[in-house]
Write a protein that binds this DNA or RNA. Structure first.
Length: 425
DNA sequence: TCTGGGGTCCTAGGACCC
DNA sequence: TCTGGGGTCCTAGGACCC
């Protein structure tokens, strides 16, 4: 059986762990530059603040209802995630970490009573050790496990743990489950299904295989099988290297200067290169893109990307050079840029790298020693301790983060203060 | 004034091969 | 008059996820 463990309102819960006074209050966490709402506590959801809501549109509501607002604090969320995942992986045969707040677990075989017991203990352990509440659904396939978790979260009677192993129970749940909520069905597919008069999961699984294959491709057919309890989406153990690595940011303010744009692109290339080396890969292609602010209909718009191919490398200096050259090709004057990004693709593992017959990369070998030395120093003294001049000294493209909580678990200087007998503020 | 970031998978169509 | 059949690889773009 497969379990899906999903942290409840993860970012909001992380903030609450270190500030219990937030319990019972509406809490929201914002995207970079404090632009959109990307996480909400139940109380904030109840106020009708939608996912992705632009903050400025909800300012009045936020003030009137005293919603507690936080900038993103990925150092904190990433670290809390790691703790939660460690506990989960200790208690399962195998784990697939699906996102920062979700993991599939392979529970093996067991009676319903045993499985329920297992996940209840697990939930309790995660809560006790980290303070993060999770919901856990158990089912024979991933999509059903998703649905089980959904029930676990919504139905207060089940204590955040729900088993969807029995076919009769499954049919009951599917009869009432909207297709739009099925994992893998997005806006477009839901609309198409609605036009066909199909609203619930139960109606979807009654469609013939041939029809589903024609209208919704192999993806749709797999969904049907999964919904019927036949696994069609394989369990992928975590730790597989990524096939693409991307770093992209919106700017706090629009940028017109080529110099700053170049610094931002260089910084993104550096960050991609770091991630690339961490998974021991070399990249052979890069996309870089820039675009203006698409919400500003009053301003001229420009949006361009370019793909560059090159011999596989993991050398930061090489990747930055490539990124800078690519930027020069797509840059146009007289636009106010809002976002820039770098994507690395076409990976090979670093030890499978093919040598070149006429160029043994003597330059590259020397530079890689430098790059590795920089990695070591940054690891010991903190990210960004040593940086390239290309990245610029002024952090003009730095993020707006006016309400970030402390990095309680990852910075000595920001640990929680606790003093006996007094309430700490 | 103010609108996120980082991924995966699938398909269609073109280019090319014998 | 009539001009094959079978395949691979690559890319762009769409759809979806959290």
């Amino acid at each position: 059986m497969i379990a899906l463990a999903d942290c409840n309102n993860f970012y909001a819960s992380c903030e609450r762990v270190f500030d219990p006074s937030l319990n019972g209050k509406p809490v929201v966490v914002l995207s970079n530059n404090d632009g959109c709402v990307i996480a909400r506590s139940n109380e904030a959801k109840a106020l009708g603040i939608p996912m992705g809501a632009p903050v400025f549109q909800y300012k009045k509501l936020i003030e009137a209802e005293r919603v507690q607002v936080f900038s993103t604090n990925f150092a904190l969320y990433g670290d809390m995630s790691r703790r939660v995942m460690n506990i989960l992986s200790e208690s399962a045969r195998d784990i697939e970490i699906y996102s920062i707040d979700e993991a599939f677990l392979d529970l093996g075989k067991g009676s319903d009573a045993e499985l329920l017991q297992t996940v209840r203990i697990l939930r309790k352990k995660v809560l006790q050790y980290t303070g993060i509440p999770v919901s856990i659904g158990v089912a024979p396939s991933k999509i059903l496990a998703k649905i089980a978790t959904h029930v676990a979260k919504k139905d207060p009677s089940c204590g955040f743990c729900y088993l969807l192993t029995d076919p009769i129970k499954r049919d009951t749940v599917l009869a009432d489950y909207p297709v739009r909520e099925i994992w893998g069905i997005g806006r477009r597919t839901a609309e198409k299904l609605r036009n066909m008069g199909i609203a619930k999961a139960a109606a979807f699984v009654k469609l013939s295989d041939a029809f589903i294959l024609r209208e919704f491709t192999i993806t749709g057919l797999r969904m049907k099988q999964e919904l019927l309890g036949k696994p069609a989406i394989s369990f992928e153990s975590s730790g597989k290297p990524k096939k693409a690595i991307c770093t992209a940011r919106s700017f706090g303010e629009m940028i017109t200067s080529y110099e700053f744009l170049e610094q931002a692109v260089a910084s993104h290339a550096v960050s991609c290169a770091d991630k690339l080396r961490r998974q021991r890969s070399c990249a052979a292609a890069m996309t870089i893109f820039i675009h203006t602010n698409m919400f500003r209909k009053d301003l001229p718009q420009y949006c361009k990307n370019i793909v560059v191919k090159f011999p596989p490398t993991q050398n930061t200096l090489t990747l930055v050079r490539i990124a800078k050259n690519a930027l020069r090709e797509i840059y146009r004057e007289n636009y106010a840029y809002k976002k820039a990004g770098v994507i690395l693709m076409d990976f090979i593992q670093e030890d499978n790298r093919q040598g070149e017959l006429f160029n043994a990369y003597p330059e590259d070998a020397r530079e890689m020693e430098l790059v590795r030395a920089v990695d070591l120093l940054n690891e010991r003294y903190g990210r960004g301790t040593l940086r390239l001049a290309d990245q610029g000294l002024l952090d003009k493209h730095a993020l707006k983060q006016s309400r970030r909580s402390r990095s309680y678990t990852t910075r000595w200087s920001e640990l929680l203060d606790i003093s006996a007998g007094k309430s700490e503020k």
